[in-house]
Structure formats: C-alpha cells, structure tokens
Write a protein that binds this DNA or RNA. Structure first.
Lengths: 200, 200
DNA sequence: TGAATAACTACAGCGGCTGTAGCCATTGAA
DNA sequence: TTCAATGGCTACAGCCGCTGTAGTTATTCA
C-alpha cells in the first residue's frame, strides 16, 4: 500500500496535499464561493496555474480521494464470500464505501465539510452527484461480473443506481432537517435496507 | 391552462422562447460547448445580459420546462385512486413525469437533444442530476402526504431516490451503449419495476 | 555527465456570470 | 387621457474559473 515513490513524485504529492489543506481551511473560514482558486494557490504557495494541474475544477479539490472509496467498494464485491447473496454483497460494498472511508477521514473533518458544503453549494452538489453516477457504472460492472446469472446489463445499473439514489436522498434529507452524524448514518442504513429488499 | 397574459408578459415569453430555440439550434449544429451564450443571445436578437435574466446558467436553457414534468408527477400522486397501492402510485407518477412529457416534446426534439447532450457534456449532466435531486424532495413530500401511514421522513426520500436513481442509471447505461429510444424506454421501465418490488 | 522528462511558472486570453445604472414600453390608477 | 410606477431590456465594466503556450528548473535515467 505504501509505495516507494521517487523524489519528484513525493514533491508532487506534497503540493497536492498543500492545496487540499489550504482549500479546506479557507472554505471553513469563509465559505466555498468566497474563496478563489488564486487564493488557495497563494495559501499553498504555488501558482494558480498549478492548481489546475492537480484538480480539474475548483470543486474537485474537495472530492480528492473519492476514488479510494470506490475502490473499497470494488474490493468488497471482489471479496464475495462463497454463497453470499447478491443483496448482502451490495450492502457490504455500500457500507465499505460510505462508512469505512467516513471513519477514516472524519478525523481530518474532510467528510463532514464535504457533506455540509454539498448540501449548501449547488455547484459542489452537482459535481458530487456526477461523481456518484460515474462510480455507479464501475460498481454495476463489477457486480454483474460477480453475479452473472442474476444480473443483466439493465438490472445491474438499475440496482446500483437505486442504492446510491436512495442513500443520497435519505442523507440529503436528513442533513437538511439538521440531523446529527448518527441520525444521518441511520437514515442511510435504512435506505440501504429498503433497496436490498427489492433483490431476493 | 392557457392564461390570459398581458402584453408585457407575452413579450417576455417570446424572448424566452427565442432564446431556447436559438440555443437548441446552435447546440445541434455545433455542439454544446462550441456555442457561447453571447452567440445564443445574438441569434435570438437580444443582449447577452438578457440571457441571464431568463436562465440562471447556460445549462438551464436546456432544462427549461423541466418543472412541468415534476408537476405532472405531483398531479399523478394527488390523483391517487381509492385503494391504489403505494408502488402503483409511484410508478404512475414516474411514468407521467418521464414518458408523458417525453412524447410531448419529442416532436420538438428537445428531450432527445437533452438526453444526448447530458450523456456527453459533463457540465450539463451534473446540472441535470442536481435538478433530479431537488425534484425528488418535492415528490417525497407529496408521496408522504398521500401515504402517511406507510412512509416516514426517511423512507419517503429513500424510496423516491431509489426510483430516480435506478431510472437514471439504467437510462444512462442504455444511452452509453448506443441503444435507440425504444430500448432506453424499456430499460427505464424495467428499472422502475425493480424498485417497485421493494415496497409491498 | 548529458539528455529527456515532468512539475511548475508567468502571461495572455476566453467565456460564464454579475452589479449597476439608465432607457423605454407597458401597466394601472387618477 | 395622463402620469407615475413597473419591469424587461441594454450597455458597460469587471470578477473569476479555466485553458493554451512557452519557458525555467529540478529529477530521473541511460
């Protein structure tokens, strides 16, 4: 997991991390759209142009490491136990993706900040949803490979879409009525269970 | 339905319509991001500033009339027949929202163009997904009012989210493998049926 | 040690989007 | 019919996200 990286690569990761941390700090202080990319770059002591060498858009700096979450889910699917049911695997994958990573970067507060900003900043919300959609395609493909007999090219995406849709909607709803982390968590789990019922 | 509008309001609608038509035509000709807002305004013979008096963003010109679709679904829920089951009402509402409106503006080609562009243009896709999410909240609320005994504040959003998520994912998947309108339609119906099974 | 590579930089520029202030047609009341 | 209020539209100026390009410097690898 811990790769032996060259000096060049390490420096690159360092500036990337500096950009992320600067962005998070500034967003927390002043709010998302009161902070310009130029300011983030300034705080990280790099040129503004460099920001866009690391992140495609301003929103993406908050979605850093999102790929890791998807990988966790893909692993969870690959690690399917013998005789494990479709619904069980799916729930386990979602659980990994959401909560394992959640706990991991809760300490840094990134997940919380992201959730809060996603609920309030339309641009960020939109980008986040789009990320979910592309992730869904990967999950659907992996799931179909794991259960080739019970899933076809329509039901696999539909099932994953239902899961992600249900979880997002319930979480967003909970966030908007001001629920705390635990309640949000419960709402998400309940949504997962609901969809899991649609597969036997 | 056909309101008696004042002259001022009619003029406003006319420029709005001119903007939409100019945008659609230009997008079809040259593709979404090869067209600037200034060009759209030019083609509609208004100032660029006027464009943003009618639409919040460049993407929004393609999402015009989307509210109408949501209203159709809300009506469908309100028109619940006596003894109609939750799953039936939900499916009927989704059906209204997607296909009734689909048929209606298929003639103008708007739905088709929108679907095609949404599959290829990230910015548009993101905005579309966001629209779905906000629509979901309204649908969930209406549905909960119609079935107060079987839905709570968590399951209602979850259920609607699952529906929309499943339908979007299956449609996107079908579009991306190059399916024609009929196949896309079937995939969406299949997704709806899948989620409907999770409510008894 | 020298050549290739790649992260970074400065600079110039496009285009989405906004604030502002003013013009003019429509509107509704006197 | 007249006049003040309204609101859709315009020009103008400007911010900011984002990109292309060309050049500099540090690293890698042969």
């Amino acid at each position: 997991m811990v790769e032996k990286l060259g000096l060049r690569e390490r420096k690159k990761q360092r500036t990337r991390q500096a950009l992320i941390e600067a962005a998070v700090r500034l967003f927390e202080d002043r709010g998302y759209d009161q902070v310009t990319v130029a300011e983030i770059a300034d705080a990280a002591e790099v040129s503004p142009r460099t920001f866009f060498l690391h992140f495609q858009t301003k929103e993406d700096v908050l979605l850093a490491n999102a790929d890791v979450r998807v990988d966790l889910a893909l692993e969870a699917i690959a690690e399917r136990h013998a005789g494990e049911r479709l619904s069980e695997v799916l729930v386990r994958a979602m659980d990994q993706m959401i909560f394992n990573a959640w706990d991991r970067d809760l300490s840094s507060g990134l997940a919380t900040l992201r959730a809060r900003l996603a609920a309030s900043e339309p641009a960020l919300q939109a980008r986040l949803l789009q990320r979910y959609l592309t992730a869904q395609a990967e999950l659907a493909q992996a799931l179909r490979r794991a259960f080739p007999d019970s899933l076809d090219t329509t039901t696999a995406p539909a099932l994953v879409g239902a899961m992600v849709g249900a979880v997002s909607a319930s979480a967003m709803s909970a966030l908007q009525r001001g629920d705390g982390p635990d309640e949000v968590r419960n709402a998400m789990r309940q949504a997962m269970a609901l969809v899991a019922r649609s597969v036997t």
